[in-house]
Design a protein around this nucleic acid. Structure first.
Length: 358
DNA sequence: AATCCGTGGGT
DNA sequence: TACCCAAGGAT
């Protein structure tokens, strides 16, 4: 009989399932680039990028970001605009600003070395309870629990816990702290739980026939695997219509910088006017310059949380008026050096074919 | 506690 | 097409 009394407080019936899950993870885990390092900085960057973002999207960004900012000091001393350019298209741009601010704090408070103390980690900007547990357990194998959307889903099903979303997450934290190995292997355990949620115990149509926990899963036993966890209610999406101007002069393209506060703060986009509705005002209602419309180049669809956006790509020409901030002429070849919004990247790709954005 | 903050892929 | 929501954190 293996010893378990010092390793976990979990009741005996869970022991077999826990062992099955760890064995499954050892065999089936995806070979992701950030799983090839124990560098806490590199792991931290991956965790920040993975927040609300798919693994497949992150791989390329992570690789380029690590090449551009290889360590804490490189990130701390970088210009914010360069960090945002590396982040361009990932969304939730506060994450990029927080990353840089946290790197500066690590240099100031911790001599440039990623802290090993949970309170010190949690105090860094952009790092909450999840990321604290993730970096400490994965990079340092400290016995810290973590809960993300995968863990809430896996545990809610495994133990058939039926509760509203907010309560289910609090419950999952308690459960995760009970289950996490207390001596060693916390990082592997946490990743196994998340990997199961990402690849087998998926939000819809979970692949229970491939699940190492299926025999112990109470939701499956009760036919609740497609019911739990309970979904959160979502507000009605709002429709927004925009005109995005494609204005060329020589080899230059007219671009517009967004305000320093609010959505996509400080990022660059095509000059954009919001036609309807006026509330919410996601984009300026009019430009500070007169443009003469040419042919329409097409229509594209985009989404920003709770908003469905229809964008008319409108070619245009500028008269004698002088271009002033927030508008600027930029050589087409240099568009890739700007921190463009995702919508701008789409629009530019539609107008010019895939530009040099990477 | 509820809302804000982007984007893309799966179904 | 339309909807779902992902390795969350700040306010």
């Amino acid at each position: 009989m293996p010893k378990r009394s010092t390793d976990t407080a979990a009741p005996a019936p869970e022991f077999a399932a826990r062992r099955e899950l760890l064995a499954w993870y050892a065999k089936e885990r995806r070979d992701l680039p950030w799983r090839r390092t124990r560098d806490p900085y590199a792991i931290w960057i991956s965790e920040a990028m993975l927040q609300q973002t798919r693994v497949e999207t992150v791989i390329g960004y992570w690789t380029r970001f690590l090449a551009r900012f290889p360590d804490v000091r490189a990130l701390a001393s970088a210009d914010e605009s360069d960090v945002l350019t590396a982040w361009s298209g990932l969304g939730y741009y506060r994450r990029a600003r927080s990353l840089r601010a946290a790197a500066q704090a690590i240099v100031a408070r911790h001599d440039g070395k990623f802290p090993r103390d949970a309170e010190a980690v949690r105090a860094l900007p952009g790092i909450g309870p999840y990321t604290t547990g993730a970096v400490l357990s994965i990079a340092f194998d400290q016995p810290e629990a973590l809960v993300d959307g995968n863990v809430v889903r896996v545990l809610s099903r495994w133990f058939a816990h039926d509760a509203p979303a907010a309560a289910a997450q609090r419950w999952a934290w308690e459960r995760a702290r009970e289950l996490v190995p207390k001596s060693k292997g916390a990082g592997e355990w946490n990743q196994a739980l998340m990997e199961l949620g990402a690849t087998v115990c998926t939000p819809r149509s979970p692949a229970c026939e491939r699940c190492p926990v299926a025999k112990a899963c109470l939701a499956r036993a009760r036919g609740l695997e497609n019911v739990l966890p309970r979904a959160k209610e979502r507000p009605e999406p709002i429709d927004v219509e925009l005109v995005a101007w494609v204005v060329e002069r020589g080899g230059d393209v007219l671009v517009e910088q967004r305000p320093e506060t609010g959505r996509m703060a400080g990022l660059w986009q095509l000059p954009t006017e919001q036609r309807s509705p006026r509330r919410p005002q996601l984009f300026p209602a009019e430009l500070g310059i007169e443009l003469t419309p040419g042919p329409e180049l097409g229509l594209l669809r985009h989404a920003i949380t709770h908003h469905r956006i229809r964008v008319v790509l409108q070619r245009g020409t500028v008269g004698r008026a002088r271009v002033a901030a927030p508008l600027r002429w930029v050589p087409k070849a240099e568009l890739g050096t700007l921190a463009l919004t995702g919508m701008a990247r789409k629009a530019l790709a539609a107008a010019f074919g895939r530009p040099n954005l990477e």
